[in-house]
Design a protein around this nucleic acid. Structure first.
Lengths: 344, 344
DNA sequence: GTGAAAGCGCTAACAC
DNA sequence: GTGTTAGCGCTTTCAC
């Protein structure tokens, strides 16, 4: 009977199994150099006693840390919440702990969080969310991560390519090309873009996709207004207001994520502009509410939960010679927020 | 210059500051028994060197663990995402790490997560989300937590009262009383409830509030249909279908959370039933999308992010003789999804 | 194949 | 006030 306040230690298991501490450790870690019978017996005893290793002692003694640090812009953004959900799921299967921290779309905060996680000796770092166009920021993050990796840490990122690590890459460009193509097919020629703040690579990539689709129609990005605002519902509302006042000829708005699209829809409703009869709206991501909006949102589906799962799975594999890249694929989901361009 | 692969240790700081390990430790922990000058010097050196303590060593040596375990039903549910956001915010200020795990609304899974967190030696445990009506489950959780507390762990919960620990308590009953009162004031007499699965105390409490409002009008819960389904959008859709087919006289639906309300709205739209002209709908929680739905949702606002902040703040305080309770307050937010009962 | 023993980096008694 | 030292519970050489 352990003293109250004292939890089961490995030595207790070892004694009960009639082996040494070292053997017990090897057995539970599934390492070589223990006969099958002994190893089995130890595991058996450990299970019976309900032994759980002390992760602090384990990590301190040099074993790899079993915690994964997940950096997201903001956990209450559904995009990141769904990614986190996937990460947590895999982590639970693997017996890993997930530490979540916020970067708040601030490159310096992100760097701070990164350093903090490294100082905390997490074993795996996952970074979700757009990269920054600022090369200095990316370089610093890259240096930090490469140092971390050289000490045995594992890293994977979601949605950024400039970090030289394993990456899950959303189909930003192809997705928005499909989105713009869909609107062009419907006859829209006065398209406006509600974009997030400049400086995020996600924005850049998604705009590039639109550009590419426009070119195929002999149009150019130069002809269409791009309004930069926050990458949030509030930002969408602001962008929509500006588009309505400055570009009244607009018949379709491409919001570069679903959050902005929701803001756009909200503003159009306030202005009594029927969607899609008078204005088509598209989003990007297909967060789970997108289907339940009124009108339901035409958007690009990204498998966010899967992306979280994929990222952690990548990080769980041994590091490869060159960074792996896992494109996510995408799917144009046509719903009720888009329709033919109004004849004018 | 530390060897590559070797991080800064406290002893390095101590040497640089010309003091012993113990003094350095005391200085950084801000503990008694060090002269101000020395302490300042040590802190100064630590800052210059960019020293961050190894939390594993620290915890192992007996200092309190600086990680907080947060158990939520599901992180990609906006209710929990917003709570988590508040927790993460305070944790960041306090230099704490947040570990998030899922219970998936499964009492046994919750118990497993709890035991796991305790085995992991977290210092603080936060549990968010409804309790269970099953006394066995609550008793087991309670026992586990009280053992954890007796070993110095700190606990706070959000939205459950049967655990004998500090609690942030959403105004479930008063909120739904206000909600039902609002509908009754509008003349609705055929009200249906779209409820989550039985067995959750949140459901019980919110139904009790409705009951109380009904009684004030001389009505009773017996007269109104309660459809139990999942506490999610999908559950809301199913409940709405059933209400429409089995209780066609209904003029108002109380969904016991916003997720269900969204499902209800979605189904009503599919049936071309105008809201609020022909059917009023209310939700509960005021998740951030509620205002952006069409029609925007009348609901009870709960300050989720604050609730997260509050819970961690409670847990950070020393334990009091008797569990503290912090009611959240609530606010009836009337939007476009409710209107006068149609004359029939 | 198994055991003994030396740390990992820190905190907390305990001396001075 | 400050320093010395014994662990915390585990992994990992190094002997056997």
């Amino acid at each position: 009977m352990p003293k109250p306040g004292t939890r089961l230690r490995l030595i207790d298991v070892a004694e009960r199994a009639g082996v040494s501490l070292a053997t017990a450790s090897r057995s539970l870690a599934g390492r070589e150099g223990v006969s099958e019978e002994v190893a089995d017996r130890v595991r058996q005893v450990a299970r019976e006693l309900g032994y759980v290793a002390n992760p602090y002692a384990r990590t301190l003694a040099g074993g790899a840390s079993s915690t994964v640090g997940l950096v997201v812009h903001q956990i209450d953004d559904p995009y990141f919440a769904e990614i986190a959900s996937g990460v947590i799921e895999i982590a639970a299967e693997e017996g890993l702990l997930v530490q979540i921290c916020h970067s708040g779309r601030d490159p310096d905060a992100e760097l701070r969080q990164l350093r903090h996680l490294i100082a905390q000796r997490v074993g795996i770092i996952l970074i979700a969310g757009s990269g920054y166009n600022d090369p200095r920021v990316e370089a610093e993050a890259r240096a930090e991560l490469s140092e971390f990796q050289s000490q045995g840490g594992r890293v994977a990122v979601i949605g950024r390519h400039a970090l030289g690590v394993d990456a899950v890459l959303p189909d930003n460009e192809a997705g928005s090309r499909a989105l713009a193509g869909h609107l062009l097919d419907l006859g829209h020629r006065h398209i406006a873009i509600a974009a997030g703040k400049e400086g995020l690579t996600t924005i850049t990539d998604r705009i590039a996709g639109v550009s590419s689709a426009l070119h195929q129609c002999g149009l150019s990005l130069d002809n269409i207004p791009i309004v930069h605002s926050d990458f949030t519902r509030g930002g969408g509302r602001m962008a929509a207001e500006q588009i309505l006042s400055d570009h009244p000829e607009t018949t379709a708005i491409i919001a570069l994520n679903d959050a902005m699209a929701m803001g756009v829809l909200s503003t159009l409703r306030a202005h009594h502009i029927p969607v899609p009869e008078q204005m088509s709206v598209v989003g990007f991501d297909d967060v789970s509410v997108a289907a339940d909006l009124a009108p339901s949102l035409t958007t690009i589906r990204l498998p966010m939960t899967d992306m979280g799962r994929m990222a952690l799975s990548l990080a769980l594999k041994p590091r490869s010679a060159r960074p792996r890249r896992r494109p996510t694929g995408h799917l144009l989901v046509v719903r009720d927020s888009t329709g033919p361009a109004p004849s004018r």
